Computed example of a mutant assay.
Amino acid sequence: MLPWIQLDRATIPGDGGALRLKRRGGEFSIMLGANELMNSRLSGSEEALATLSCERIAGRKNAGMLIGGLGMGFTLRAALGALPQDARVTVAELVPAVVEWARGPMAEIHKGTLDDPRVDIHIGDVGPLIRSATSAYDAILLDVDNGPDGLTRASNDGLYDRSGLQAARAALRPKGVLAVWSSGPDSAFTRRLREAGFSVDEVGVRANGKRGGARHVLWVATRP
């Protein structure tokens, strides 16, 4: 078996530690400590985060989407495949190196999506974009942690607490969608979503889609 080779290392701004980009043959992995955050062989649940959200906002003109976390670009690529040409997608990525990796060693995975004219890349925290917006987005997709708690940064907890969910609700247009990726269930988060005024669907998905893999959870929450 081929060995893993570390290609780069990037510090997460604030209190988040460091990401490591590794490659083994044609396979890529992004690690945070001992945790594998992303693997290029496993894209099913990230793609589902986009496709389920796009289904909810289908038919809207000039739809606006905010994606928190670029990662390996699977969510962005799936969103662009489902959204019409008049849509706009803002991708907020906290770690500048992740965008550099997308244009460099992982360009073959991203397949030019960062150059799509519908896409704007924001280097920075997704939280302030949400808190500063009012009825600005039809969908907000969050895949910045392994679930609704601040794994990569403790300050990310503010995305998932009561005030963070209220801010997301205010940033969405009527019948807008907040979709959150998680490696597992969290009943307390489901409850907080409902308390924040969302209609909530908790969807079980497989890491590699129809081909199976680990069981992940997506919350697809709609602003009434």
Rank of each mutant, 00 (worst) to 15 (best):
R191L: 09
T134V: 04
I12K: 15
I67G: 02
N39P: 13
V98P: 03
L42K: 09
F28Y: 13
A87Q: 05
P96W: 06
G17N: 09
G212D: 08
G124S: 05
I140E: 01
E202R: 00
A79H: 04
S43M: 12
A133V: 00
I12C: 09
P117Y: 04
P224E: 14
G197P: 11
L49N: 14
R103P: 13
Q166C: 12
R194F: 06
V180N: 00
H216S: 04
G197S: 06
R191Q: 05
L142H: 01
A107K: 09
L218V: 03
G176H: 04
G17M: 11
L76H: 01
L172W: 02
L129F: 01
P128F: 01
G73P: 10
R88V: 06
R24G: 10
A207S: 07
G16E: 03
K210I: 07
A78E: 12
W219F: 08
I5Y: 12
G112H: 05
D149R: 10
R103T: 13
V220M: 04
V217D: 02
L218Q: 02
R41K: 13
M1R: 09
R223T: 12
I67Y: 01
V217K: 06
L193F: 01
R191S: 12
G184D: 05
P185A: 12
R41L: 15
G59F: 08
P128L: 02
G197A: 04
D157Y: 04
G127C: 14
E195P: 09
F28E: 02
H110V: 15
E93G: 07
L37Y: 04
Y137F: 12
A214H: 10
L142Q: 01
E100I: 08
Q6H: 10
L7C: 13
